[in-house]
Design a protein around this nucleic acid. Structure first.
Length: 437
RNA sequence: GGAGGGGUGCGAGAGCGGCCGAAUCGGACGGUCUCGAAAACCGUUGUGGGGGCAACCUCACCGUGGGUUCAAAUCCCACCCCCUCCGCCA
């Protein structure tokens, strides 16, 4: 959620910043939020005033009875009752406005960071760097899409995946399955120096999915189990962020760094027909997520660290990649700013998005009511007070697309695929994946 | 799934429908004492909303949401969560 107080005190500035999203509907919503907020505060003030009178009368009733003055008590009671009816009406009216405002606020996106580049959409994203890329370095043997490589080597079985669960539910087998596990394991190992490993639940409550911003707006993108009122997570970001929901952390324990391997389930409702071949877009995949809860001051540096960590995985796999600075017009709902990491896959000749390194400012924290206490430790120290944390996260490694890039890049002229050096230790001695005999 | 018990402030834990935002103990913080520390003693110590330059005023919050009542932590209903036993089970 955005800060309603900021909107109230500086509607012009907030709208100007938000205008960079290039979504006129959002500006309309902001105006409506300002109006609702004003209405709510007016109504709440009169409601509280009447309520104060009722409270005072109730006290007077008690005193009258205690003093033995029944007549006076009865009279005050009658007075209070009629005032109470008025109060009831005011309460209902205020509650209706409050609900309307809250529902609106849950749908208003985050304010873009000033550092996010200008731009209206995807085409205006800024390619910050391209690393390790030489288009002429590839041989014909590397220009084979991973789904063909996978079938040749018997390590990817899309047909049987479709039989078992439907299209876009890949089945990895043999060394293909090992490669999935190796990539996962490597990402966890490489970040264990400063991230606590968590193995979170895959099914979460509605509140949890609301905290990170997927609900209410993007319900169609998530798998939902009606019978138990639970949602399948689209990323470990969801349970990790909610781990500390409704808590107050100490400033001294920030930044708090967490990582998790988890399955990720996505209906991809809005992407029907796009990138459907092979592993480019699937309903279920594995990912290692790294996440940090920080103070506002720490956020920028931590953001860079997350980016560097995600890059390091691609560097050690010797895969070409580029860093894309997402423009204000293309930001996701919860983002203040983010970088995409795109890996080059020679077989499909595409840059595949393998990580979004995201900074949500206090947007998710406000939804999750996740705060920290400012000032060192003390419960009553001067300058203490609670404030919302900043949340940041990124994929340390998203398996299927990296899997595709590895298989295509490491394919040899004889059709085999060599196992990247960093992953060998997870491969039980196998250095080369060859077709089944 | 069945039977029972329970959810109160940072923690433990009390709380006749009104004098309860909440006893008491512990913790934390500040102070006194001390060369210093411990002990002892004194004091402070929840969150959020609204109003006010301010002292301050006011509203809400005792798992969540409804209800009864002039008045609810306290009574009623529903739900959620936790614990114990039984059943089932990777």
């Amino acid at each position: 959620m955005i800060d309603i107080r900021r909107l109230r005190t500086d509607p012009g500035g907030t709208k100007a910043a938000m205008a960079r999203r290039h979504d006129p509907a959002v500006l309309v919503d902001l105006d409506r939020a300002v109006a609702l907020d004003h209405d709510l505060r007016t109504r709440a003030a009169t409601r509280d005033g009447v309520r104060a009178q009722v409270n005072a009368l109730s006290k007077a009733v008690a005193e009258a009875y205690r003093a033995g003055d029944r007549d006076k008590g009865d009279q005050l009671k009658a007075e209070s009752r009629s005032l109470g009816e008025e109060e009831k009406r005011l309460v209902q009216q205020a509650a209706a406005v409050e609900t309307e405002l809250r529902e609106l606020l849950l749908r208003i996106p985050n304010v873009p960071s000033a550092e996010a580049p200008d731009g209206a959409g995807e085409e205006d994203n800024v390619i910050v760097r391209v690393e390790n890329f030489d288009p002429d370095s590839y041989g014909d043997h590397q220009r084979v899409p991973h789904w063909e490589v996978g079938r040749e080597l018997g390590i990817l079985d899309l047909e049987r995946g479709a039989k078992v669960s439907g299209s876009m539910f890949p089945v990895f087998r043999g060394c293909g399955a090992t490669l999935v596990r190796a990539l996962t394991q490597r990402a966890l190992d490489a970040n264990a120096d400063s991230f606590e490993e968590i193995r979170p639940p895959t099914l979460v409550r509605t509140d949890t999915l609301t905290a990170t911003g997927q609900l209410p707006k993007f319900a169609d993108d998530a798998y939902y189990i009606e019978r138990d009122d639970l949602w399948a997570i689209p990323t470990a970001e969801v349970p990790l962020t909610s781990l500390y929901r409704d808590e107050v952390l100490e400033e001294a324990e920030l930044p708090r760094r967490l990582m998790a391997y988890s399955p990720c389930l996505r209906r991809e409702a809005g992407a029907a027909g796009r990138d459907t071949r092979g592993l480019l877009r699937v309903h279920e995949f594995d990912k290692v997520e790294i996440l940090a809860l920080t103070t506002p001051e720490q956020a920028a540096a931590v953001h860079q660290d997350l980016l560097a960590r995600a890059e390091a995985r691609l560097i050690e796999l010797a895969l070409p990649y580029r860093v894309v600075d997402i423009c204000a017009g293309d930001l996701g709902q919860s983002h203040a700013r983010y970088f995409d990491l795109e890996v080059y896959a020679p077989g499909v000749d595409m840059w595949l998005e393998v990580s979004s390194i995201s900074w949500f400012s206090d947007y998710q924290a406000r939804r999750a009511n996740l705060r920290y206490r400012r000032g060192a430790g003390g419960a009553s120290g001067a300058g203490s007070g609670t404030e919302f944390v900043h949340t940041l996260n990124g994929s340390a490694l998203a398996v299927p697309r990296v899997w595709a890039a590895v298989v295509e890049t490491y394919r040899q002229p004889d059709g085999s695929v060599t196992v990247p050096e960093v992953l060998r230790r997870y491969f039980r001695g196998t250095e080369r994946i060859t077709p089944p005999t």
